[in-house]
Nucleic acid binder design. Structure first.
Lengths: 121, 121
DNA sequence: TAAACGTGTAACCGTATAGTTACGCATTAT
DNA sequence: ATAATGCGTAACTATACGGTTACACGTTTA
């Protein structure tokens, strides 16, 4: 994908969530708002690295920044996750279906494509 | 993240979902299994590009391949999406909370950090 | 058996990404 | 005032990623 400066909300959200460190930051913020430095302290990478992750999370509106003196508190904003949830919604019915009829499924499809009896050469 | 050859299931799944084309492929497969070429035909990119996306989806176990003659059918396997769903689960309570008490939240945190009365210098 | 088909892989390219160190700039403390 | 603190940004590096074209290989058709 050439153009990553996307604004489609779901896209931005999925992209932000693709990084394990960013997901861990969100997990951390479930405990409550924290200043940037404290967040960084929880990870084995440098403070600037976390700062950049926070920027991405900010741009995806998954966190909200509040300045207070020289601190910048980051607060979780879970609202964009709704988009992920509703995307998942379409799959809920699928992940319960067992794979028993999988073979039949595929063969039916094959038959449709070729106009043949499934199983025949 | 330097090492992308991860096997942690949730990680692989989130990563696979980070690309809009791959998500669209999954959406397409909800209609039923389809041969690779037919999937590729639904997208504006080249067939090899889709072939690589399919490989990633396969490695994330989000699709299952079935060979039949010279066709390779791809079948949706939504099971790994459970991991995403359970990750999201932790946030459900958050995305309903309105932002009314946000200020209080932050100031409380500030007080905790500094040992001061919120609002005082 | 030879041609056509369906599909994956290799090699390559340009951009995005995550990380690092060095630095700048407010804000608070001395 | 000056120093220390908290944090973002710039510049740079290495690698991952998505896309393309060329090709290989098994399967089906003629």
């Amino acid at each position: 994908m050439r153009n990553r400066s996307v604004t489609y909300s779901a896209e931005a959200t999925f992209h932000a969530l693709s990084d394990p460190t960013r997901r861990a930051v969100l997990d951390l913020l479930r405990k409550g708002a924290q200043p940037a430095g404290q967040i960084a302290g929880a990870f084995p990478v440098s403070r600037p690295a976390i700062s950049k992750h926070l920027r991405q999370l900010r741009q995806a509106r998954l966190v909200i920044e509040h300045r207070r003196g020289r601190h910048r508190f980051y607060q979780l904003n879970a609202e964009p996750l709704k988009a992920v949830d509703s995307w998942l919604e379409r799959y809920r019915s699928f992940w319960q279906a067992n794979l028993a009829n999988l073979k039949a499924f595929v063969e039916e499809e094959y038959a449709r494509e070729t106009g043949r009896e499934p199983g025949k050469k």
